[in-house]
Design a binder for these strands. Structure first.
Lengths: 196, 196, 196, 196
DNA sequence: TATGAATGAGACTTCATTCAT
DNA sequence: AATGAATGAAGTCTCATTCAT
């Protein structure tokens, strides 16, 4: 029986993530991705019109899924802004935990696409704006510091999380996940200066 | 003989930084860098044996200079760890302020070199270790929170700064420098949760 | 898939021999070889990893085939050393007769490879050593002059044959093959001084 | 005091011979020849309009000098054709004995020039024709075999000598000069078959 | 749909030659 | 005359993409 369509597309995406993660987008040769996916070179082009589209598809998925997750957290009424914030950190790690290669790609390769306007950018901005809205909500309820500049905060937060993610993916022993989660929350919420 | 007017090596580096910043390392064609530097293609190879060496030279300079700056701050006896920390943030922005393209290259292109062991990696690690030592110093003197995991902190800090830098380089109006500096310090030291 | 009609590797080798023969190894541009073989430039690299490998393959074939021929002659028990010697001369001409360009390449381009140790050098030395052994055999049976220094003889013989071959390939009318064969045998065996 | 002109030209030619001999014409870079001659790159072009002209000048000298030598031998009335022949062999070795690199260049690089008509070709043909005339002379006086085809003979002789020369230049111990001279004469005159 | 051989544009790099000093 | 930095044309080779089967 013939395998269902869509299987091959997933195989190719999986393979691409692995190859992108290990050698980077430009060093990743279509031939090698095809090999890793166990299909012929030409088959890749039945599913993706060109190399960039593969990367695009990856970011489309990641950002739309991250958006869904963030939106879900945002809409919860049963927890405070601070708890939403903590949940977001957990959710981001949960999302990448089963696929560290995806984390590496997510961190390193987005700038190859950034200049152009792509589908994923919609989810990208929507996700960032949710983070900002959670923050604003927290300011209103007196939980977050109203003097913090929101774009600076979200960039800092996003940049910090990205780099942490990539360090973890590179060396999971040096950066145990529980430690990272707890520290990320602590640092972002309370800073590193000793309270007194 | 035909002596050089000006400093062609610097011209080429300057041009390369601009081109790398605008299209990325792999899309940056030697031909275009040469044009931007106002020299012939072959001239580039009088100063750099290949394309990677150009990028390498950039990172060598950046990291050795950042190291010098950080070391200087670290050695000061007249200020507290917290003040050193704040100085470091200021110094990083000061360093890139006159050359935003360099910031973009610094943020986006290091991973093309990371896999290999290069000169700059020495300064890279030494710089990161200085940041960690400032932190440890602060813990000892009771200024920093002893529960913070140092590698997590330094990754978070470094990642946050990097991304902030690149956002600022991209859109200087949205991210006014004074705001960024002050917020970065505040966020890292005190977090975003309202103190009480 | 796009299957190959004919044998592209052979086409490329044939084309390379023609082009090497007419302009020499270094003036032979891959583009021109590809044109002559009626394939695209890149196709050459599907069959040969670089330009030198093409030349190498040519010499591998020539020397392994010459070795087989010489070995066969050497092993014959039904003819004298002198007859073996004559057969060798005939066989060398027979081998190149249908492909004069190959003779030109064989004569002119081997020194581009000589410095390095390659597969073909094994057959090269083995072939030369067979020539020497035929000679020694002849000395033992009293047919060849025992005062002749064998390396000098084999170099002289080989050099003479090579140059003859290239002259014949250049101008087949001035050097009719029957004449060459007969004279080569006569000169090597009896010299040019009148017997008396 | 400034060195006389002409010195530098000789320096360059000497250097070129060494470099051509060791790496071949195409691998010999002008830069390297200039270094070996202890002059600047540009200086080479004050004496030779391009790279090929250097090689040309070498062959011009070699062939015009070989011609002078051969002509001198040819014109002698006090010796037989056979003695002229032997003298020619000696003279060729004498000529190259003090400069083995020149022998290597002479043997390996002439084909880079052969296709075109150059000054040296005049001396080249004149020299070969002297060899042929000595031979004819010997036939007339009953010393040489009248059945030998002259172009075949001269090609064989020239090819044999060339290769012997290059082998000697490569490994002077394996091919002691006295042995080579004596054997070359013996082989060409009497062949390798045992007289009876 | 699937294949993988074939394509050919284009990049990096070299180096003979030029030229300002 | 001498220098050697600068030039830029051109070649080797790569690899994303195509296409005949």
């Amino acid at each position: 029986m013939r395998t269902k369509e869509g299987d091959k597309e997933k195989d190719i995406l999986k393979a691409a993530i692995t190859v992108f993660a290990s050698v980077g987008y430009f060093e990743a040769k279509i031939h090698r991705i095809a090999d890793a996916a166990d299909v012929a070179t030409g088959t890749v082009y039945l599913y993706f019109s060109n190399k960039e589209k593969i990367l695009l598809k990856i970011f489309d998925s990641v950002w739309s899924e991250l958006f869904t997750i963030m939106e879900h957290i945002y809409k919860r009424k049963d927890i405070t802004s601070i708890e939403k914030f903590n949940s977001a950190i957990d959710a981001i790690f949960d999302y990448f935990i089963s696929n560290p290669s995806l984390a590496v790609v997510f961190v390193n390769e987005q700038n190859h696409l950034a200049a152009k306007s792509h589908d994923f950018t919609t989810y990208y901005s929507k996700t960032l704006s949710i983070i900002e809205r959670v923050f604003e909500e927290g300011v209103k309820t007196g939980l977050f510091n109203e003097n913090v500049n929101i774009p600076v905060f979200s960039s800092f937060f996003f940049g910090g999380m990205r780099f942490l993610l990539s360090q973890w993916a590179r060396d999971k022993n040096k950066y145990p996940l529980a430690e990272i989660r707890q520290n990320a929350k602590m640092i972002m919420l309370h800073g590193v200066a000793k309270q007194n």
